[in-house]
Design a protein around this nucleic acid. Structure first.
Lengths: 381, 381
DNA sequence: GTGAAAGCGCTAACAG
DNA sequence: CTGTTAGCGCTTTCAC
């Protein structure tokens, strides 16, 4: 090789020896300064820093990684969607990773991707990472145990059971069932006899957890479990579900597995003449940015993405840096039910065939209930 | 170093010499096989692959990068938000980067981050990347030229003028002004006398471009330019703007710089008794997933994130791999105005002080106009 | 407190 | 078609 074309492309990028020469010290000393190692006199440190500055020196990370066996980077596997939940989690993870001094490498898995999570993890391993975060994976057939032997770095799985065994596997972001419970109980507390569920695609663990939470809550309260409708997270699928649900007069309350579907659902119900929340109550999940501003303002469950990312990463980094130590314990994230206007008490018992309108509750809900942008969240459970 | 603790953490990870020994070839031959270099007999290739498989061999990327001077990775600087636009762009970029065989490193800049884009780029350079994508940066004070000398890798700036000079700077995702023009002209074509603008935060180039487009269009049509209201992209800020705008009977059409603000705006107008779209028309920007399902379904401009990412990355990779060659030309992305129900012709001229209701247009718009989830997009321009 | 020597695991030339 | 010889720019170990 012709000396040059360093990692920043410019041939002849300064190396630590250059800095050393200019500062009149040994190369090792430069290394010491840049690693904040002790035993460097302030004077020497100053000279080195100055020389480095003058030369525009940057440490070569590849060399560092090669020599030390650590890349100081963490890889994250995400679904390739701009869906609010996954995107928020990713942003949360990035922030924390950077704060911990690691670099972030990202690989997406697309739904239907043949290689899937397994492939993504492999690609991260190829790139070289010290730890891996798998964010809200979806279920895959086969390939479960494939990676078990090879994944030699700690893995943090957010929002799902570990899809395989690795040297160290941590899980985080549990408690989706508890959040679902809060939503369902809110509806039950309002007086609804039972609650329907508009589920997410069941290949997603996140969707499964919410469904389980709904089911368990209904069972705990001795209520009938109506048939589940499965959507695909999109408002369009919520809309389709709404058309079905609107035809069934028994439906007075629906818990949707995310806000997008809830919004599509509400629209379909409204178009079908079933007013929300007077006739049918709806609770969503996520608290997307517009949730407070749609009509009616959406009661929903807010997910603590930042907390989850922070807690999970803390444990992952701990596992990376203390390979022998016991894993730090996970804690359940808080449940945050945001009460707005889309869920209200059910209408009085129907008088069978002909429907009748109450006259009392006639106030225009959009005028009376202004949105609760932030404050109006009552922490439940 | 004690031999071991390879980049996958497991001490004693196999190296290429191990594979070579097992396959009975030289280490270089293993390298050849893994780099898909020509001149390896099929028989040898097979043996090498088999040995590698048996040992669970993975190339050490750090060593590769060190020896070759290329990291085969691209860094992207994004805003740390889960906002639909930036998140979609990031996902688009990830997909394309992976397809081109590069790895992706992500660094966020938070608003108000003192280091800002400059710091993020520096961090990417420290990590070692072959190219950089800066996605929708926001304006920063000072520090403009700081990086100019040091950035030795090609840089692609999406959605803004280059914030500094580097060896190679490409820009992409232009045309926001044209998209804004489509929105404004749609409103003008419907018969509105002028169009108000609910702008995004002007520190964002994306917001500025849209404002410029709006302004130019109004000028081109010889219309008055009403005062601009500036929001912060949030539905809450749109709501606040809506309360102001509702008080002004002159307002019959508003172009909002994103859908979230448009939705907040619509809510405020509705609450104030100004019906949308009968009395006030609103056009948004982005086409977020729920746009078709809010009330009324939102007419908006869809951004071609995938196209932009694809085109930009193609040019960036070209610049990386052909350092001497001319940069590939950029092309303006297509303009895609999605017409739904929130923009309609203006109400007939007002009869000054006392307002009067038309009786004709009284049909419940939500019942009559069902959303156009996909199909209803008319490509404009 | 500081330095010298020895690799980390791979790719780059060049020979055969 | 295949092997040999040198490093890439650091960190590590150990000596001073």
């Amino acid at each position: 090789m012709t000396r040059g074309s360093g990692r920043d492309g410019s041939p002849g990028a300064p190396r630590s020896v250059d800095v050393a020469r200019l500062a009149g010290v040994s190369q090792k000393t430069v290394s010491r300064v840049f690693n904040d190692e002790p035993y460097v006199s302030p004077e020497v440190r100053r000279r080195v820093l100055e020389a480095a500055e003058q030369l525009g020196y940057r440490r070569n990370n590849a060399a560092r990684a090669l020599a030390s066996g650590r890349t100081r980077s963490i890889g994250v596997v995400t679904l390739g969607t701009a869906l609010y939940g996954p995107a928020s989690l990713l942003m949360g993870v990035e922030r924390v990773v950077r704060d911990t001094g690691y670099a972030l490498r990202v690989v997406n898995t697309m739904e239907g991707d043949p290689a899937g999570v397994t492939g993504a993890v492999g690609s991260l391993l190829d790139q070289g990472v010290d730890g891996i975060v798998i964010s809200e994976p979806i279920e895959e057939e086969g390939s479960e145990g494939d990676l078990s032997v090879h994944v030699g770095v700690p893995v943090l799985v957010l929002g799902a059971p570990p899809p395989f065994t690795a040297s160290t596997v941590l899980t985080g972001a549990g408690g989706a069932d508890l959040m679902a419970r809060a939503a369902v109980e809110h509806l039950l507390d309002l007086g609804h006899v039972t609650v329907h569920h508009l589920a997410g695609p069941q290949r997603w663990y996140a969707a499964k957890d919410r469904l389980e939470g709904w089911r368990a809550t209904l069972a705990a309260h001795g209520r009938d479990e109506p048939p589940v409708i499965e959507g695909d997270w999109s408002a369009a699928s919520g809309y389709a579900a709404g058309r079905e649900l609107a035809a069934d007069p028994e439906v007075t309350a629906v818990f949707a597995a995310n806000d997008d579907m809830a919004i599509g659902l509400i629209r379909a119900l409204t178009e079908a003449g079933r007013r929300v929340p007077e006739e049918v109550s709806v609770v969503g999940f996520d608290d997307i940015p517009v949730a407070a501003y749609v009509t009616p303002p959406l009661t929903t469950v807010r997910q603590p993405f930042d907390t989850v990312a922070q807690e999970g990463l803390k444990r992952l980094v701990h596992a990376i840096e203390n390979p022998q130590a016991e894993a730090l314990p996970a804690s359940d994230p808080p449940v945050d039910l945001v009460v707005r206007a889309s869920a209200q008490p059910p209408p009085p018992p129907r008088t069978p065939p002909g429907r009748r309108r109450r006259t009392a509750a006639r106030s225009r809900e959009s005028t009376s209930s202004s949105p609760l942008p932030k404050g109006g969240s009552s922490t439940h459970h």
